[in-house]
Structures are given as structure tokens and as C-alpha cells.
Amino acid sequence: MAFLQHQWRQPAHINGLLALICFALVAIALVLEWVGGMEPCPLCVFQRIAFIAMGVVLLAGMVVPGRSVAVLTVLACLGGIGLAGRHLWLQSLPADQVPACGPGLDYLLGVFPVTEVITLVLSGSGECAAVDRVLGVSIPAWTLLTYGVIGGLAVAANLRGRRAAGGQ
């Protein structure tokens, strides 16, 4: 039993577990979409991309844990926090201040350059103001919380592992 406890303290194992959580969250979002009928708004899709980016970095951290994994995870995490914060802000607007609904993300990607699509999505639209809840909490609030927890754990694991290894 002590061997298992020691092994799960290794940054590579923690990175693997956190990567699995990131990918599981994206899978849950897909289930909510396909089975639960919750159509994602463009900001939701971008938040999924942030989780995927975090997961990919954390997978790489299974091979080479350390400061770079912590930094890259935090960058993806901060992007996700910004997206979730913007999403929550749109959801908090009074009905008369909600922006008009825009075209879907598929249409935008087919018509506009990627940089303009990003600008349009970040400006928000009416469908992003709709509030879908899981266990009584809005989905962007859950993602905001989750970005913070995963990012914090990734930083702690990868920087602690670095100090434990003698500062390599």
C-alpha cells in the first residue's frame, strides 16, 4: 500500500490523472450535448478547447513533468478562466442588454477567417446568455471552478516534483 501512495505522489502520475479528468469533462460535455440536448454556444466550444489543451499538456507532463508543464497548463487554464468569466458575465446581463443571437460556430468558421471568428465569439451572442444548469449550478461556473482546481493541482504537482528532485 505504501508503494501505491508513493507512486501517486509522482508528478507524472498526477499529470496523467489530471489529463484524464480534462478529457472526461469534455466527454461529459458531449454527453450533455448529444443525450441531454444541451446545444453548446460558441463560448462553450472554446471552453472545451481549453480543457483539451490542458489535457494535452498534462499528457506530455507524464513523460517530462516540470516547470514547463506547470506554465503551459496555467496558460491554458487562464484562457479557460477568461472564457468562463466572459460566459458568466453574459449570463448575468439583464434580458434587455443581452446581445442578439448570432450565426452558429460552423457557419462562422466557414465564412470568416479564424482571427475574426475568435473576435466574434469573444464578443458573445444571445445563445451564450442562456443558462443551463447541472446540479443547480451553471455550466460556466462549474468550468471556472474546475479550471482553477486543475491548474492549481498541476502547478503544485509539477513544481513540488521539481523541488523534490533537487531543483532540476
Rank of each mutant, 00 (worst) to 15 (best):
A2L: 14
F3N: 12
Q7P: 00
A12H: 11
I14P: 02
I14K: 11
N15Y: 08
L17W: 11
L18Q: 02
I21W: 04
F23S: 01
V26Q: 04
A27F: 07
I28E: 12
G36T: 06
E39V: 13
E39T: 15
P42R: 07
P42F: 06
V45D: 04
A53G: 13
M54I: 07
G55K: 01
V56S: 02
V63P: 00
V64F: 05
R67P: 00
A70I: 04
L72F: 15
L75W: 02
G82S: 11
L83D: 03
G85C: 03
R86E: 08
L88H: 08
Q91I: 10
Q91F: 06
L93P: 07
A95W: 01
V98M: 03
P99D: 00
C101K: 12
C101H: 03
G102S: 15
D106S: 11
D106I: 06
D106N: 08
L109F: 07
L109Q: 13
V114N: 04
E116L: 13
E116C: 03
T119H: 11
L120R: 15
V121C: 11
S123D: 14
S125Q: 14
E127S: 14
D132N: 12
L135F: 13
L135M: 15
V137W: 12
S138Y: 08
S138F: 06
I139Y: 12
W142Y: 07
L144A: 12
L145E: 01
L145M: 11
Y147P: 00
G148A: 09
G148S: 01
V149P: 03
I150P: 01
L153A: 10
A156Q: 05
L159S: 02
R160H: 09
R162M: 13
